[in-house]
Design a protein around this nucleic acid. Structure first.
Lengths: 153, 153
DNA sequence: CAATAACTCGATTGACATAGTCGAGATTTT
DNA sequence: AAAATCTCGACTATGTCAATCGAGTTATTG
C-alpha cells in the first residue's frame, strides 16, 4: 500500500515547480538541494514527468523545468498514476490498470468489494487535490507555524 | 499503493476460515484448491498468520487451520498490517510504522498533510471491516447473484 | 565562437522484495 | 505402523527500487 520514493520525489518536485510557477524555469539542482533529492535521480524523474506532459523543460544555461499546465490542472492522481501505476490496492478493482485476479469468482468477491471502497476513497482524495492545492497548503503551513500537521483534519 | 499477492492470499484464506468457523479445522489443501493459491506458498502464509495469533492449527490427520479469534474480532487492518506493514502510503504518516522522511520540514509538509488524509481514509475502512463482515458480504453476493459488484456502494 | 551550464538518454548496478519451490521432519489419527 | 497433515528453514528466480554514470545535445553569455 505504499508510494515509492520515486513517486514522493515527483510530488515534491512538482510542488516546488508550483511554488515557482511565475518564474520562467527552475533548475534541477535547485530542486535537488531544496528537497534533498539525489540530483541524478531527480533528473530521471523530471524527464519522466516531461514525457507525461506534466512538465516542460528548457535546455542550456539558464535552462530548467516548469509546469506544462496550470497548477490547478495537475492532480495528485495523475502524477501518481503516471509514476506508480494504479491507485487501487489490487489491480482487479483498478479502472485504468485493471487486471484479472486469480480468485474463483471476481464478480462476487467479497474482498474485492472492500478493496473497491478503499480504492474509491483514495481516488476521491487524489483526484481532488491538485498542485495548486498543495501550494496553498504549503503557504498555510508556513504562515501558521504553530498549527502542527497533526491537528489538521 | 499496492497490496502484495501474499496479502491478498492471506485475506482470501482468512475469508475461507471465517466461512467455516463452525467446523473444527480446514485443511490447507482445501483452501488452496478453492482459492487458486499455490499450496506451498499458502503454507508459509498461514504459518505467518499463526505467529501473528490470527490463526490456530492442528497437526496430523484431520488437522488443519481455524481462526484463533472470532471473525468479528479480526480486522482487515490487523491482517494487512501484519503481512505488509504500514497502511499509510508514506511511512512518515504511519502511526505504527513511522519513519522520518527526507523532506526539509516534515511538520509543515504539504504533501504529508494530503498523505495523512489518504492514510486516514484507508485506515477507517480497514479497521472497520472484519472477517465477519467479509463473510456477510460473501453471503450477500452469493445470494443476490444479479447484483453485480459494480453496482454496490 | 568558445566555454560553460544546463537538460537528455540509455546503460548499469547493488540491494532488496516478491512469489514461489523444496526437502526433511514432527504430530496426530486411524 | 501407515498416512495425512502441519512445520521450518533454506533456496531460487525474477523483478523492482533507488540510484549512479558516461557521453551527448542545446542554449547562453562573455
Amino acid at each position: 500500500m505504499k508510494l515509492s520514493l520515486r513517486g514522493e520525489y515527483a510530488l515534491r518536485a512538482l510542488l516546488v515547480l508550483g511554488l515557482h510557477y511565475n518564474e520562467p524555469v527552475v533548475r534541477i539542482q535547485t530542486i535537488s538541494q531544496q528537497q534533498n533529492i539525489p540530483k541524478r535521480f531527480l533528473e530521471q524523474i523530471l524527464n519522466d514527468l516531461k514525457s507525461a506532459g506534466l512538465v516542460q523543460s528548457k535546455r542550456g544555461v539558464s535552462g530548467g523545468y516548469r509546469l506544462a499546465r496550470k497548477p490547478e490542472e495537475i492532480t495528485l492522481a495523475a502524477v501518481v498514476r503516471h509514476i506508480e501505476g494504479a491507485l487501487a490496492p489490487v489491480s482487479c478493482v483498478s479502472e485504468r490498470y485493471y487486471e484479472k485476479c486469480s480468485c474463483p469468482d471476481e464478480s462476487r468477491c467479497a474482498i474485492r468489494s472492500v478493496m473497491k471502497e478503499i480504492r474509491d476513497a483514495v481516488v476521491k482524495i487524489a483526484e481532488r487535490v491538485t498542485i495548486a492545492e498543495l501550494c496553498e497548503r504549503y503557504e498555510r503551513l508556513q504562515t501558521h507555524p504553530t498549527v502542527a500537521l497533526d491537528y489538521v483534519i
